[in-house]
Design a protein around this nucleic acid. Structure first.
Length: 373
RNA sequence: GUGGGCGUAGCUCAAUUUGGUUAGAGCACAAGAUUGUGGAUCUUGGGGUUGCGGGUUCAAUUCCCGUCGCCCACC
């Protein structure tokens, strides 16, 4: 079985954008890459066949959610997560650290770990850094994330520092406990918008040593310029020979800004969530398909898109589906959005190779209307 | 034909008994929010000749008369 590995293939001469190659037990990935989110072992509304057709090389899933339901044991018995969900390409599993943030009403953090009241049935669940490693090993994902504390954006430096420190202590425990050699383990840098905390978090995470490094705790409510400042300062300080993963980001504009500054991997619920709510991402901006102005619009979501939804269906039909709450509406718009995200990042990759990334960015920004709705 | 009931927003209904500020709600519709998931949720908005006509009154969705429509029972 192939081991995890990363190779830097090249860097743009005019900025920090880079292209790379990741090897995993389930196949190869070119970076920069966008990873659609399939939290509960499913990229919502899409079959694995659809996800492949959209061009995805890797997807994300979630240890916390799968542990709660159907349970690690079920998935292990069924041959691991890949076989269970019918996806034979790479999978990255998030640890559940984000749930510490998003389900914050239901949890207690202690030195040992986090105690949740399950969002599913209220049962008390205790997760530790070790337990979360074990869950991900049992799932058999290609890339596992350490269990971290991801605080909401805050000006309270003491609070952010506490999260940095506990994440570091948990990172050491996770690294020590991790045994599945074919599976990569990524560390996570915290520190909110405080540059000094970010730098220290990175340094100490590097000292522990991981297969890749993630930036967590961004896009959690902080102003965008502050996020870009952190990216600008921290990404170049990350090792060249390891993948750099910006967690939970973002929008088409975010990808350009982050890749220009040196990020390699992204995941975000935007294409799937917006898809289910009837909004499409296009090169011209957002198309809120459910809006009344598309009632009789014969055009596809995006005229120069070659995805199945754009090849076959009008905005008028898609709007009808969305407004009638037909499942197909969510499926088709999600399909388009995932296709758009994956291929936009893929195009950036090609342009970095050709040395035309910044020109491509400029062209995209000229066409893309951020206030299109 | 006789007796009774009902008619308020696109839909289902409040408010009428005892006349009193600008006739409300849910759903639907419309617009917005959505960043390591949320088929969720929230915010905001447009909507009314209170079936129609007349009367009483300072004031009528509310009381009275007529009329139209729908429903039920009886002939």
């Amino acid at each position: 079985m192939k081991k995890f590995g990363f190779k830097l293939l090249g860097t743009d001469k005019k900025c920090n954008a880079r292209v790379g190659h990741i090897t995993t037990p389930h196949g190869e990935i070119e970076t920069p890459v966008f990873m659609p989110v399939g939290t509960q072992g499913s990229v919502k509304a899409l079959t694995p066949r659809d996800v492949k057709e959209a061009g995805s090389e890797i997807i994300l899933s979630n240890a916390y959610h799968l542990y709660i339901r159907p349970g690690t044991e079920v998935i292990r018995k069924l041959g691991g997560l890949h076989k269970f969900m019918g996806w034979d390409r790479p999978i990255l599993t998030d640890s559940g650290g984000y749930q510490v943030f998003s389900l914050s009403k239901l949890r207690k953090i202690s030195e040992d770990g986090v105690t949740f009241n399950s969002h599913f049935d209220g049962r008390e669940i205790h997760l530790t850094p070790e337990k979360v490693v074990e869950i991900q090993e049992a799932l058999g994902s290609d890339i596992a994330m350490i269990f971290d504390e991801c605080p909401a954006a805050s000006k309270d430096k003491h609070l952010i520092e506490k999260a940095v420190n506990i994440t570091l202590r948990w990172a050491k425990r996770a690294k020590k406990h991790h045994k599945r050699r074919s599976q990569a383990l990524f560390g996570i840098v915290q520190g909110g918008t405080f540059l000094d905390l970010r730098k220290r978090s990175l340094e100490e995470t590097l000292a522990i040593g991981f297969d890749g490094y993630a930036l967590g705790g961004l896009s959690v409510g902080e102003p965008k310029p502050e996020m870009l400042k952190i990216l600008e300062e921290i990404l170049p300080r990350m090792p060249d020979d390891k993948p750099r993963y910006l967690m939970g980001v973002g929008t088409p504009v975010d990808f350009f800004e982050a890749i220009e500054r040196g990020a390699d991997m992204f995941d975000c619920v935007n294409p799937t969530r917006y898809g289910r709510n009837g909004t499409a991402f296009t090169s011209d901006g957002l198309v809120v398909v459910r809006n009344g102005k598309y009632q009789k619009d014969p055009k596809p979501i995006q005229k120069d898109c070659d995805c199945y939804a754009c090849r076959e269906f009008s905005r008028a039909y898609l709007r009808h589906l969305v407004n009638s709450h037909e499942i197909l509406g969510a499926q088709l718009i999600t399909l388009h959005n995932v296709h758009f995200f994956v291929n936009l990042v893929k195009s950036m990759r090609e342009h970095i190779r050709k040395g035309s990334f910044l020109a491509f960015k400029k062209r995209f920004f000229n066409r893309f209307d951020p206030d299109s709705r």
